[in-house]
């Protein structure tokens, strides 16, 4: 089995959810997303983030706004659309369910079947 492949699959699965949840907290600039994720020890390349954001935007989950500033040209800030909000809620629900289930599975105490199997061995 290709461990690395599985790893990247797992990460890929939660990637969009993470990004959506960051944007859901308020209007953000893409590099802020990278920073926030980095702070959570999740590294993402900007080169992969931008296409992802564009995809989400084209799917109608995100929207963006040009923010003018004095010192530099306008920046693109991303915000959640209503549709995105709904999608995020669905994803969050799924995530919560999944964490509970996975926790239940990987914690030996809470799982009598595994326990039995262990003792049987």
């Amino acid at each position: 089995m290709d461990i690395q492949n599985t790893q990247s699959q797992m990460r890929k699965g939660v990637l969009e959810f993470c990004i959506l949840s960051i944007i859901q907290q308020g209007e953000v600039y893409p590099s802020d997303i990278v920073e926030q994720m980095k702070a959570a020890n999740l590294h993402i390349l900007e080169g992969t983030l931008y296409p992802l954001l564009t995809r989400l935007k084209n799917a109608g989950l995100l929207n963006y706004r040009w923010v003018e500033s004095i010192s530099c040209p306008p920046r693109k800030y991303f915000v959640m659309t209503e549709e995105g909000q709904k999608a995020y809620e669905v994803l969050q629900k799924t995530w919560n369910e999944m964490t509970t289930s996975v926790d239940a599975i990987i914690t030996p105490k809470a799982n009598p079947i595994v326990h039995q199997a262990d003792t049987a061995q």
């Binding site: 690395q4 020890n41 999740l42 993402i44 080169g47 992969t48």
Partner: peptide, 25 residues
């Protein structure tokens, strides 16, 4: 390097955690 080259996108299509295996990779 911080934004990433196409080859990096390919390898890590997604994002990477700062784990040891990955940095090695």
């Amino acid at each position: 390097t911080s934004i990433g080259r196409p080859a990096d996108f390919e390898a890590q299509d997604g994002f990477e955690a700062n784990t040891s295996t990955n940095t090695e990779n």
